[in-house]
């Protein structure tokens, strides 16, 4: 490994070691409050029965490891003060932020609130387009739009208990949003000369959604996290087809 990389690594090690030390200390502190001697759930406690035994053991070893890591890092940094610290490129950092925003936005805001078919299509479309086009301009647009919409949804999810009507309305809103995204990005993609990539993104997102949702919901009987206007219709359609099949 290059010394430039190594110094970055050791600096990161020091930060990680501090986190490890704090967490393991908190763990020991918390474990100390677990029942140690009295009887719990009909079982007489002794030091060797206590629920605190294992966590304290683990946290203590972790603490030792953390301290060791800290000193190793400090010693290295002190010995190599002269090496300059290189940082990750700006573009790479943006891509990282976008990736985390896409994944956590999907999981924390879209999945619990919006019909799974709509959310998976929107997610796939924006995700694929952003990285397949490989254009920083599009990536910035995706980042801004996706993050703000996800944040609005998150606030909505945390603050209000939605009625069924509200959820349906939200689904329609999300559907409209997905359609708008497909439309707007078409224009932007044409401006940036990557229309074919836009096409591939829409196609892939649509096909994957249309294949995955029925397979999971109808084939493997996995109830999807949120079943709104699209998934419910899909399930209804199954019974309609079944009834036609049965001939009534």
């Amino acid at each position: 490994m290059q010394p430039e990389q190594l110094i970055v690594l050791r600096r990161a090690d020091i930060k990680a070691a501090i986190v490890i030390i704090i967490v393991s200390l908190l763990m020991i502190f918390e474990s100390a409050s677990f029942p140690l001697t009295d009887s719990y759930a009909g079982i007489q406690n002794a030091w060797y029965v206590s629920p605190a035994l294992f966590p304290i053991l683990i946290a203590s070893i972790l603490l030792i490891c953390g301290v060791t890591l800290l000193f190793k890092g400090l010693a290295f940094v002190r010995a190599h003060k002269e090496i300059p610290v290189v940082r990750a490129s700006q573009a790479s950092r943006w891509r990282f932020v976008l990736l985390v925003s896409l994944i956590s936005g999907m999981v924390f805001s879209w999945v619990p609130l919006i019909d799974f078919a709509i959310s998976s299509f929107t997610f796939l479309f924006l995700f694929i387009l952003a990285f397949y086009s490989d254009s920083p301009a599009l990536q910035h647009k995706v980042l801004t739009i996706w993050t703000s919409v996800s944040l609005i949804l998150l606030v909505l999810y945390q603050t209000s208990a939605l009625s069924e009507g509200g959820r349906n309305l939200l689904d329609w809103g999300a559907l409209l949003f997905a359609a708008l995204m497909v439309g707007f990005f078409r224009q932007w993609a044409i401006n940036l000369d990557c229309f074919t990539k836009w096409k591939t993104s829409v196609k892939t997102a649509l096909i994957v959604t249309l294949v995955v949702c029925p397979i999971f919901r109808l084939g493997m009987l996995v109830p999807l996290p949120t079943e709104g206007i699209v998934i419910e219709k899909m399930v209804d359609a199954k019974y309609l087809i079944r009834d036609m099949w049965r001939g009534n």
Binding site: F127, I128, F131, T204, V208, V212, V222
Partner: peptide, 14 residues
Amino acid sequence: APIFLPVVTLMCVL
């Protein structure tokens, strides 16, 4: 990869 991995991510979620 930019097409495949988003789909993989969706499968990870499911």
